[in-house]
């Protein structure tokens, strides 16, 4: 793989995580449990899609084949998406939605912080913009997880269930293949074992306060970075891409 292809793939991985999570959060629009949360989730979706747009635009420039952000978001198939399996998991109840975001946020904030020092100036600039918003995201999902875990018997049970169900997908966030390891050497991408340490610290701190049990690190459902997904991604793309597929080039 050339350096250019590798940078394209690496950038796409970040972008796909953000786009798919953003789409999942946007599914709550108009269905939030309370008005404030409806607004919070759509705001977060907007932050994620904003960062995704910057990354797709950059990926398109790196690739140099004239693909813009829309072409990358709307005109790729399931196997060409390289997001983690975590972000494509369904919303479920509110505990599942919060836990999915919490696991992602606990990874995304230290990742963005590290990327601000990337040898790649554009990735660093995009991260510097995102890092400030990511602090609000961690705060939001942590607050809710603590409220659920340390809440009623029912909310505690549901939060623990969501954690147990989604934990197996968290491993996908920390997979380092050859592409990634080359970039660690080049100072472009951070070593994910360091990001994992920051993730663990956040998870342990919040779960302790939430009186929730950290699931054991058993089997991890990985493969997203290689384009191998759970059944859910295809359905997301079918809905998200329908308009551009049916009416190519349609604009507002």
């Amino acid at each position: 793989m050339s350096q250019q292809d590798a940078l394209f793939t690496y950038t796409l991985r970040q972008a796909d995580d953000l786009l798919i999570l953003s789409h999942r959060l946007s599914e709550w629009c108009g269905h939030g449990p309370v008005l404030e949360e409806d607004i919070a989730l759509t705001n977060r979706a907007l932050d994620h899609i904003g960062e995704a747009r910057n990354l797709y635009t950059y990926a398109g420039q790196v690739e140099g084949k004239g693909r813009d952000e829309d072409a990358l978001a709307y005109l790729r198939n399931e196997r060409q998406f390289v997001n983690t399996k975590l972000v494509e998991q369904p919303n479920g109840d509110y505990a599942h939605t919060i836990v999915r975001s919490f696991l992602f946020d606990a990874y995304h904030l230290p990742l963005a912080e590290a990327l601000t020092k990337s040898a790649d100036a554009q990735l660093a600039a995009i991260a510097a913009k995102a890092v400030k918003e990511a602090q609000y995201h961690v705060k939001h999902s942590s607050d809710w997880l603590i409220r659920f875990g340390d809440g009623t018997e029912e909310s505690h049970r549901r939060a623990q269930e969501a954690l147990d169900n989604l934990w197996t997908y968290s491993g996908d966030l920390f997979v380092m293949d050859a592409v990634h390891q080359d970039f660690v050497k080049a100072g472009i991408a951070p070593d994910l074992t360091k990001i994992k340490a920051a993730f663990d610290a956040t998870v342990d701190r919040v779960l302790a306060e939430a009186t929730l049990k950290r699931p054991a690190d058993g089997f991890m459902a990985t493969g997203g970075r290689q384009g191998k997904h759970s059944e859910h991604l295809g359905f997301i793309l079918a809905e998200m891409q329908y308009l551009q597929r049916a009416y190519p080039g349609a604009e507002w």
Binding site: E36, E37, I39, A40, N43, R44, L46, D47, Y136, K139, H140
Partner: peptide, 13 residues
């Protein structure tokens, strides 16, 4: 503070 997220991305309620 009622919510860290408001009617636009830049505002809290």
């Amino acid at each position: 503070m009622l919510s860290a997220f408001g009617s636009t991305a830049c505002k809290a309620l």
